[in-house]
Amino acid sequence: MEKSITKKQVRIYGAGGHSQVIIEVLEANGFDIIETFDDKPKTAHYASKNVVIGARKDVKNFPHDGAPVIIAVGVNSERAEIAGFLKCNYEKAIHHSAIISDASSVGEGTVIFAGAIIQPNTTIGKHVIINTGASVDHDNKIGDFAHISPKVALCGHVEVGEGSHIGVGAVVIPKVKIGKWCIIGAGTIVLKDIPDYSVVVGNPGKIIKNIKPN
């Protein structure tokens, strides 16, 4: 008689479109998604099932203990806020086609999607999104809550600060440091260091405004 295989259990916080990609990765990796939470369950993605109210309105009575969680929210600031009030253990979601060097590290709650490449000696923080087909070269440092969008190319020794969003197809040359909570527009070519809270667009990338921190 064959033994039944016990699936690893995980919970999802967030029920928008971004969560659907994470769910597909988790299910392909043999996880059983046992609960889905959202702060606005009535506006959940049509493919989401059995969504229940999240912790925002009643943190005390939220089931913090139990299976680990992935915060499946695409907006960096919201992901950081949710991580601030949840008291849960966290899981990672890494697509089987992603290539990650054994000499690199990936923080808790981080998701890495199909075709992404992480080269040696790179450190990826907590609750980071490394999106489809992104290339993160050697000796990079990616801060917590950052989002590296599809087809981004980060060359060697690049630093991306906490909460920064690198837009689709952007390129960052070697040894450039991008500050925290920056927005780098789609297709931007970043040739020099970028200070905190900057919005950068163009080729070459230019700062067009600063974002006031909350």
Rank of each mutant, 00 (worst) to 15 (best):
T36Q: 08
V52C: 06
E27L: 13
V136A: 03
N203K: 13
S77K: 14
A83Q: 07
Y13N: 02
I5P: 00
G185V: 08
P63A: 10
Y13R: 01
T188Q: 03
T123G: 01
M1H: 05
S77F: 03
E81Y: 08
A114P: 03
G143T: 04
G185S: 00
P68V: 06
T110C: 05
L154Y: 09
G14Q: 09
K175E: 11
H45V: 02
G66L: 03
G115M: 13
A114Y: 09
F62E: 01
K206H: 12
G163Q: 03
A98S: 07
G66P: 01
R56W: 10
D38P: 08
T132N: 13
V199K: 06
S149A: 15
D196N: 14
H138P: 00
P120C: 10
V75K: 09
P195G: 04
D196A: 09
P41M: 06
I173H: 02
T43W: 13
F37D: 01
I142T: 09
I124N: 02
I112F: 09
P68K: 02
E81F: 11
F145M: 03
P195C: 05
I5F: 15
V25I: 15
K3L: 07
A72H: 12
S4M: 14
C88W: 12
I178Y: 10
A15R: 14
I99N: 05
N76A: 07
G161S: 00
V21G: 07
F62W: 06
E27I: 15
I53P: 03
K126Y: 10
D32Q: 13
G54M: 12
N203H: 09
G169E: 06
S48V: 07
I148Y: 08
I22P: 11
S164Q: 04
N61K: 13
G205Q: 10
T123W: 05
D65R: 14
S104N: 05
A146C: 02
K42T: 11
I100T: 05
T122V: 04
D139I: 11
K8W: 02
R56T: 07
G66V: 01
V171W: 04
A98F: 04
K192P: 00
K126M: 11
K212V: 14
I184S: 04
P63M: 08
E108Y: 14
A83H: 14
G202H: 11
I22A: 12
I100K: 03
V158L: 07
K42Y: 12
S101K: 02
K3N: 05
N214Q: 08
K49S: 12
T188E: 01
G74N: 04
C88L: 09
K126D: 12
I148G: 06
S48D: 00
G179I: 08
V25Y: 09
V160A: 03
C182I: 04
T132V: 15
D32K: 12
I184V: 07
